[in-house]
Each structure stands twice: as C-alpha cells, then as structure tokens.
Nucleic acid binder design. Sequence first.
DNA 1: GCATATTTGTCCGTATGTATA
DNA 2: CTATACATACGGACAAATATG
Lengths: 230, 230
Amino acid sequence: MTDAAADALAALARARIVPTATTAERTADAVREQVVEGRLAPGVRLPEQAFCDALSVSRNTLREAFSQLIAERILARAQHRGVFVATPGVADVRDVYRARRLVEPGAVRHGVHAADPLGGKALRAAVEEGRAAAASGDWTGVADANQHFHRAVVGLAGSTRLDAWMALLLAEMRLIFHRIGAVEDFHAPYLERNAAVADLVEQGRLEDAAAELDAYLADAEARIVAALEG
Amino acid sequence: MTDAAADALAALARARIVPTATTAERTADAVREQVVEGRLAPGVRLPEQAFCDALSVSRNTLREAFSQLIAERILARAQHRGVFVATPGVADVRDVYRARRLVEPGAVRHGVHAADPLGGKALRAAVEEGRAAAASGDWTGVADANQHFHRAVVGLAGSTRLDAWMALLLAEMRLIFHRIGAVEDFHAPYLERNAAVADLVEQGRLEDAAAELDAYLADAEARIVAALEG
DNA sequence: GCATATTTGTCCGTATGTATA
DNA sequence: CTATACATACGGACAAATATG
C-alpha cells in the first residue's frame, strides 16, 4: 500500500469515528429543526433538564447548543428565567425586511453570478420545485421552495458569508410564519412572482428583476405586518 | 414612598447586581478585545486551562465564550487540537468584500436614512474623528475611525440585524489588517475618500456616493489581496 | 515506531442566587 | 413570606485524540 493510500485510510477512519461534528452542534441542529418545523412554537419555554433528558446530552452541551441558537435569534434568553423560542414582533419583521430589501435586489442587480446562466438555473430550479409542490397540494413544500428561491437569489452575490447570514434571516422568517399561522394561500401568490423574477433574470433584464423583487418584498412585508397586528 | 418609586428602586438594585450580562459573555468580550486589538495574533493557539486561569472562569464557561467567538469567525476550532485565532486568507478577503460591495453602496443608494440629514451627520462625525486622529499621528485611531465610518454607512440602511452582521465583518477585517501588519499609511488614503463619500451623501448625490464607495472598496480589496499574496 | 504526557470533548454533582407559586 | 423550581457557574472526573520524547 502506498503512503498516500495509508494516509487516506487513516483520514477516513478518523472521519468515521467523528461522523457529524460535535455533540453540541448536532444538538443545536436537532433543536433548530424542531423550531423551524413549527413543532416548538414561538414563546415556548425550553427547560434545560427536560431537554437534556430528551436529547441524552449533558447540561453543558445543551447550554452550548442553546447559546448558538440564541446568537441565531431562533431562541431568546431571559435572565435567570430560562430559554424560550423567540417571538419576533412587528419591529423584527420591519428590521428583517429592511435588510432583505437591500440585499436581495442588490444581489440581482450587481451579483457576480446574476448575469451568468448558472445563476439563473438555481432560481429556475426553485420555481419549478414550488410549482411541483403546489400541484400536489404540499403547502409546506411550497414554503420550502420559496425559501430556496430567496436563498438562490442571495447566492447570486457569490459570498458564503452573505449566504450564511441570509440563512439566519430566513430561519427567523419561518418563526414569523408560524406565529401568524401562515399556510396554504399565504405563499401561493409568490409562486408566480418568483417565476417572473427568474424570467427577467434569465433574459438579462436585471434592473427590472430587481425592481420586481423589491416591490414583491415590500408587499410581503405589508401583508405580514397586517397579519401580526390584525 | 410611592409604589412606583419602590418598584424603580427594586429594579435599580437588580440592575446593579447584574451589571454586565453573563460571565460567558463578559469572557467572550474580553477575549474578542484581545484579538481585535492585535494582542492575540492570527494562528495563535488558545489553551483552555491557561485561559481559565488567566480569566478566573471555569472551563465550561470559557468553552461557551469560545463557541460564541467561533460563530463570529474570530476564533476557529480544530477537532481535538484546540482553539486558534482565525487566520483569514485571500478567499476570505474576497468573500467579505463581495458582501461589503453589495451592502455598503446599497445602503447609500437605498438606505432609509440615506436622504435624511441625520444619516449624513454620522458619516461626517466619523470623517472628523479620522482627521483628528491623523493630525495627532494616532494611526490606530485612524483605523478605528475608518471602521466607524463604514459602520455609519451600513447604519443608513436602518436595520439592527444588518448593523450587527457588519460588525462581525469589520471585526474580521481587523484580523486581516493585523495579518498584513497594516499600519499608518494603509488607512491614510481612505480618509479623504471617506470625506468624498460623506460630501456626496450630504449633497443628496446618493448615486455618485455609492459609485465612489464601490470603487473605493474595490481598490481596498485589491490592495489587501496584494499584501497577503506578496 | 512506540510509550507517555498533555489536552480536548463530554459528563456529573453541587452550591448559589433568582423568579415564581 | 415561605417554599419550590430552575438557571447560573464552578470543580472534578473520564475516555478519546493528539502531541511529545
């Protein structure tokens, strides 16, 4: 056996022993999934002991996971009172949309991948995913596809840091949707607006695409604020 | 004493007892300061026991602080080998600048505070701070003022989430500056370019200001990449 | 190449202070 | 007001992995 092969085997062995990062990360992933899937509703308290038992991890590990999720604004900590699922309000929605309305149309207008065909492909794929989900009445699938679309939009900018940050904003959006009980028809209108944006990008009409996207985000913000206040 | 006064006193007492968040947060702040001030250089290892002793905190608390700083990309963890000060490379610089060149000119162009006089004031203040520092030969002061300028630029967007994210990017930039040993003349040229952007914003010529800022960021990126590769 | 020492990752028990019933 | 429950923080322990001689 060559040295290189031996090294590769050794590396593989190490990788197998540590299949998925640290326990704290896996714990954070598990809790985050419960939250964004809506099984843990906004405002619900997360007692340490109960979660330690349920997830079979120690308090130290759980607290490390909680800290990460708090940094992501998915959870919130009340001093000496515990950790809760975040309850984003109207101010949070406005804040998130100010950021989104700056970043998303900007990525379409000036993104390094906005003009190249591959960028358009990612948008198109998300649009088709949404249409397929709608056709089979899978409304959570529509919501997922909608998130993938916006992820693809930001991806046009070509910055992994921006992608990661937008993932946090989109996770927060899912919390908001759960708060207002958004289902079915809430995401449906955006299917065709997504398609319109994708079309314009594919045609190279980036300025028009950005304008359409901005108007669309403004509309979505208004509807969400109305739903929260109503 | 009125009930309201009693409540206020009680609240004050509680506030005094908990002056600054949790121990883990204060620990993270202390380590972060050491890093961004350059006293802990990129690549340096941070042994847990040594830092526990130095900061008088337990390993659990220190690890919680480390986790937060790792999420901020200020530190990096190597599995079973320890925690190190992050060492951002050329790819990181390009990634950060792709994000900055999207967000910063965007904030100038479309920020909700870009047109109002208060927004311009914040830019002007950072420019004056930089000039004062330069006049007294305080080059770290010039670097600080430069950061404040870009913080003010992003502030035009009016999103606290965007502000917080940009603070992370700017902290990473300080790491990069320390890597290339940037001092004195590195930040000096940007003093007048900051002033030019501030002038244009104050005159309401937002499009020109954004274009100037974009060109300026592109130039800075090129100089940093050259310094890293050279 | 091997044995040893060091350090990390994880867990447990406990003491203290805070909030709530 | 007391009592209970719980978050915060600490210290010790052990196995696994790495670094060192």
